[in-house]
Nucleic acid binder design. Structure first.
Lengths: 215, 215, 215, 215
DNA sequence: TATGAATGAGGGTTCATTCAT
DNA sequence: AATGAATGAACCCTCATTCAT
């Protein structure tokens, strides 16, 4: 089997198309981070991506789709990184703390993008908003699993699993949302994680599990 | 001490001016609550406040000042309500839970405005943003005090006071930010508070204090 | 009864508003006549009317409303002039010829506007189009009345009344639509009318009525 | 005479070029017919013709040329169909009625395209417009011939030949331009033709010729 | 010959802000 | 003090046209 000219052409075009889409979304994320959301005009995205306004509409049907793609990219990273980080870890408690840790690190890597998720989501249509919320729930899912694992192992006090998992998610987001505060306190992300583990995670554990965590 | 005619006039004018300012900010908050912040145009604020567009600019130099005043008012409510709610309560643990509870209820009363604070903050000027952050710290202050009180009484595990207080603040905000989620779960604000107390506050207490909370 | 300041103010404002509306529609008609329909941009209308783009939207909700108002103005003139022109004329045949004559003269006075009606009507929404068609039927109505009058007097051959009236309307429009042709033939509007009467109207009459017309 | 390889190539290319041009114009006409002329974008024409946008510009220098070619094709059909339809008919009066009938049927086959001719003509350049007018006169020509034939045979009252012929042309166009009206009246194209013949053509005939028509 | 990605001027529309009254 | 008519820059989006491949 050989690859003929058309296939090559198609492949090249596909690759270029992908590249363009990435360029545009990157530009959008970049702008959203540094400027007020108002500044994220199609013109600004085009300029920042180094393409024309018209081309934007070849790759995305309208502005909302660009926003959606940008947010999706960030949330996708969260969804994928957390399960991978706790792969192979046996201790249910460590699975929880490591899931939270990785989530916080992912947030740290996309700090501005997380902020923009909170800021831009309401400028989406109802459908777009629903889609983003669905994706956020996907990022919650690995946390819930880890928490349930700990609960099944008898390591958790009697706390509502989903709420506890959601708290972990929110407190990971908080690292981005309130970075101005923690930064003023001279806190690094690792210190932040460690303190939150000591404060929130440890508090949800049974004494036995807590001893294991401390040890 | 005598009050002459000019003073009276000035006083009346001052009172009227204050009234006008209040009217305008009320209108702005009202619009923010019910409509998407898209609806918060100067024209909409003017109409809703029952004044002319021109008059808005007599009381506020530009739109940012109105937004700032609106956010300030909401944050002010948080700052004032929490200390008042725990006035006279003796038990340090109950002071913490009640402070948190009141904070959540205040958030519930201004749900959309809280969301808007997160959403609009980056459209403010740097100065405006700094001012909002300063005010947020003021709302944090009563929570820190309550937490310190519990710590001083020996009711707290070894957790960082400020971070713990900040978590409570964030989780109060979360009631507004993630209301779509909790609403889908059929959670009322009181149930939310109760579960968060069980999950986060209880976990920060010593065994002795926890027993007191449960009892 | 006296007119107080507010009434005066309101009256003045009302007059100014009316003036503005007229200005804008005049500008729109002017542009539509001389340029291709593409050239009738909101910017062009604004410039031609001597106002800003923004102001256009204070008086008309969107572009379609301006177009609609322009067409309505022209059709209104047709509707009003024809009945007035045949007021007091007794002879049913003369009423028909005079109605047609006046219609043609009205068309001649608004030649370009008639052309624009044909040209722009399809850029309207379905509702707008329906409205224009309704108005065109109003301009047809006096012609139908005149034709029926002649028919009732026994002056008409057996021709379908409405179609005959509609033919007269169309042939009046034709003076505008095909002016390039008649102009090349050196025909004046009065000569055009006279020839059409001889050709179309006379042919619809009974011999007796035709003799009366010729006489 | 010999045809060498290059000639063959050139001939094939010429044929292909002609085919392409036809494809494109067909697509343009098709779009004009079914959609509002809004849909007639270069992209839409290309897609509908099954070629690329770029190729359009190999065959036509710009959009106006495509529009022009499309209108030309439609008018060409009118020019050709009418003489063919009355070929071999002897009676001068029947030649007139049949010419009109065929014209109306041709209009009915291209209803939207006729409307578009009226609508788009002013968006053409002056040269383009002149060309269209010249072509319209070509479609008038067979009607004039038929009318002159009837006049020469003494079948016509004293009516201006050209104007009468032009009226027939305009009333044929009217079937398209005012289709909304006739459609609302439940009129088919054949009924329309029959009524117009009774109203307009019959009225231009001498009594003797009219009797022949009725018989 | 044929493609379609890329351009950018121009379209309609909104809205914070100003100023004559 | 108060109005609201007026402004115009900026928004999102479309489409005729070009050109590297």
């Amino acid at each position: 089997m050989s690859i003929d000219g058309n296939d090559v052409t198609a492949a090249v075009q596909g690759a270029r198309a992908e590249l363009r889409g990435r360029q545009i979304v990157d530009a959008a994320i970049g702008l959203m981070q540094e400027k007020g959301s108002n500044a994220v005009s199609m013109q600004a995205i085009a300029t920042s991506a180094g393409v024309s306004v018209g081309l934007l509409y070849k790759y995305f049907s309208d502005k909302e789709q660009i926003l959606l793609a940008a947010i999706t990219r960030v949330l996708g990273a969260f969804r994928d990184r957390v399960p991978r980080a706790i792969e192979g870890i046996e201790d249910p408690v460590i699975r929880v703390t490591e899931a939270f840790t990785e989530f916080c690190r992912a947030v740290d890597d996309h700090r501005h993008a997380v902020v923009l998720t909170y800021r831009e989501s309401r400028s989406l249509s109802r459908d777009g908003l629903t889609e983003i919320q669905r994706q956020e729930l996907e990022t919650l899912s690995p946390l819930i699993d880890a928490v349930r694992g700990a609960a099944d192992a008898g390591d958790l006090r009697d706390v509502p699993h989903e709420l506890f998992a959601y708290d972990l998610l929110v407190l990971a987001h908080t690292w981005a949302l309130k970075h101005w505060y923690f930064h003023a306190q001279g806190l690094s992300v690792d210190e932040y994680v460690q303190q939150q583990v000591r404060t929130v995670v440890r508090g949800a554990l049974t004494d036995e599990a807590a001893t294991r965590l401390d040890g």
